[in-house]
Simulated assay, not measured.
Amino acid sequence: MPQLNISPWPMVILSMVVTLFYITQLKMLGFTFHMMLSPKLTEMQKHKTTWELKWTKIYLPPLTFPQS
């Protein structure tokens, strides 16, 4: 039974890693990264809804006392 020649494997693995790195870099060129991020000031609009015109009762959850 012949022996498996593994001498070209390091070169194949190295070329694969370099190719994947190169493809990744090419894909990253398509993205635009914004360096200066500033918060947008948007004016909040107040919407009139029916429940704002009426008084509604807010129920609090029951108090739980610590058990010792």
Rank of each mutant, 00 (worst) to 15 (best):
M1C: 07
M1Y: 13
M1I: 13
M1W: 07
P2D: 12
Q3I: 11
Q3V: 15
L4H: 11
N5P: 03
N5K: 07
N5L: 11
I6Y: 12
I6F: 14
I6N: 10
S7T: 13
S7A: 10
P8H: 01
P8S: 01
W9A: 15
P10A: 06
P10K: 02
P10R: 04
M11G: 06
M11Q: 10
M11V: 01
M11W: 00
V12S: 00
I13F: 08
I13S: 06
I13V: 15
I13N: 02
L14T: 09
L14N: 06
L14P: 01
L14D: 08
S15F: 00
S15H: 00
V17N: 02
V17E: 00
V17H: 00
V18K: 04
V18G: 04
V18I: 11
T19L: 09
T19D: 01
Y22G: 06
Y22E: 12
Y22V: 11
I23L: 07
I23N: 10
I23E: 09
T24E: 00
T24C: 01
L26Y: 06
L26K: 08
L26P: 02
L26N: 07
K27F: 03
K27T: 03
M28T: 05
M28H: 03
M28F: 04
M28K: 06
L29N: 03
L29P: 01
G30H: 03
F31A: 06
F31W: 10
T32W: 06
T32Y: 03
F33H: 07
F33T: 12
F33A: 12
M35V: 08
M35K: 08
M35W: 02
M36C: 05
L37G: 09
P39T: 13
P39K: 13
L41N: 13
L41V: 13
L41G: 07
L41Y: 09
L41Q: 14
E43R: 02
M44D: 04
H47E: 15
H47V: 15
H47K: 15
H47Q: 15
T49K: 13
T49C: 14
T49Y: 05
W51E: 15
W51G: 06
E52Y: 08
L53E: 08
L53T: 10
L53M: 08
K54C: 02
K54R: 04
W55G: 07
W55T: 14
W55E: 14
W55C: 07
T56G: 05
T56I: 05
T56H: 09
I58D: 10
I58F: 09
L60K: 12
L60P: 03
L60I: 03
P61L: 14
P61N: 14
P61D: 12
P61I: 10
P62W: 01
P62C: 02
L63G: 07
T64M: 04
T64S: 10
T64P: 03
F65M: 02
F65R: 05
Q67S: 05
Q67C: 01
Q67F: 04
